[in-house]
C-alpha cells in the first residue's frame, strides 16, 4: 500500500529550492491565520488547490480526503453551533455560519498547504532547509524522519489490526467506548514494535556516521534561482495582502 505523502514528479514546484518552499509555507500559514472572512480564505484555498494541480500533486489531496472532508464539515458544524452570542441578544445564525465556514477554510488551507509541501519536497530537502534556517540538525532530522515513519507505523497498525481480527476481535460492533477499548490489542504490539524499530534505526544511524561530529555534506544541490525568488516574492505579496484585507 502506498502511504508516503511525497510524489516523485518533475514539476516546477518540485524543482524549487527547499528554503524558498519552507518560507512560503510559513507565509501562507501566516496569511491563513490572519484572514477572518470566508471569501478571502476561500480564495486562498483555491490558490493552494491550483498550485497543487499545477505541481501534479492533486493525488495527495485525494489520498488525504478521509481527513480533509470530515475536518471541514465537523469544523463548520461545531463553530456554527458554538458561535459566541452577545448577552441578551439573539444569536445571529448567518454570522455564526460565516464564522464556522471561515474556521473550516482556515484549517483546510493549513492542511492543503502542508500536504502540497510534503508532496513536492523530499525529507532530505526539508531537513536541509530547516538546518539552513537555524534549526539544530538533529531536531530537524527527527522531525522530517517522523513524516517518513508515520506511514510506516500506520501500515504496521493495519497489519496488527488484521492479526487481531484473525483472532476474533470485532472492531465494528458495540458502543464507541467499547470499540475504542478493543484497540488495546492493536496499540500494544504497534507501540512495542515501534520501540524495537527505533532501537534498530538508532543502531543503523550510528553505523552510518550520524554521530561522527563532522560538518555534514550532501549530493550536489542547485542554489536559489530566479524561480525561487519569484515564489518567495509571491508568498510575501500574499502575506502583505492579508494585512490590508478588511
Amino acid at each position: 500500500m502506498a502511504l508516503s505523502l511525497y510524489f516523485d514528479r518533475s514539476s516546477w514546484l518540485h524543482r524549487r529550492h527547499p528554503i524558498a518552499k519552507v518560507l512560503v509555507l510559513v507565509l501562507l500559514f501566516f496569511a491563513a491565520f490572519l484572514l477572518a472572512d470566508p471569501l478571502p480564505l476561500a480564495c486562498l484555498f483555491v490558490l493552494v488547490f491550483a498550485v497543487t494541480a499545477s505541481a501534479r500533486a492533486l493525488p495527495v489531496l485525494h489520498r488525504m480526503r478521509w481527513l480533509m472532508i470530515p475536518v471541514f464539515f465537523f469544523t463548520v458544524i461545531i463553530w456554527t453551533l458554538f458561535y459566541p452570542a452577545t448577552a441578551g441578544a439573539p444569536v445571529d445564525r448567518w454570522a455564526a455560519l460565516r464564522y464556522g465556514l471561515a474556521m473550516a477554510l482556515r484549517l483546510e488551507t493549513f492542511l492543503a498547504t502542508g500536504f502540497v509541501f510534503l508532496a513536492t519536497t523530499t525529507i532530505e530537502e526539508f531537513a536541509f532547509a530547516l538546518a539552513r534556517l537555524g534549526v539544530p540538525y538533529r531536531a530537524g532530522f527527527v522531525l522530517t524522519l517522523a513524516f517518513r515513519l508515520v506511514p510506516v507505523f500506520f501500515e504496521a497498525a493495519l497489519t496488527v489490526r488484521d492479526a487481531q481480527r484473525c483472532r476474533g476481535l470485532d472492531f465494528a460492533s458495540g458502543s464507541v467506548a467499547t470499540r475504542i477499548a478493543r484497540y488495546g490489542p492493536v496499540i500494544v504490539p504497534v507501540f512495542i514494535g515501534g520501540l524495537r524499530r527505533a532501537d534498530q534505526m538508532a543502531f543503523a544511524l550510528e553505523v552510518r556516521g550520524f554521530s561522527a561530529g563532522r560538518p555534514r555534506t550532501s549530493l550536489p544541490r542547485p542554489g536559489i534561482d530566479a524561480g525561487d525568488l519569484w515564489l518567495l516574492a509571491t508568498g510575501v505579496a500574499i502575506a502583505v495582502a492579508t494585512l490590508v484585507v478588511p
Binding site: 556516521g209 563532522r214 555534506t217 550532501s218 549530493l219
Partner: peptide, 13 residues
C-alpha cells in the same frame, strides 16, 4: 552515510 562524514559533494555523487 558519506554526507554524515563530510565527504565532498562531487565525491559523494
Amino acid at each position: 552515510g558519506p554526507g554524515q562524514l563530510g565527504v565532498e559533494p562531487g565525491e559523494i555523487a
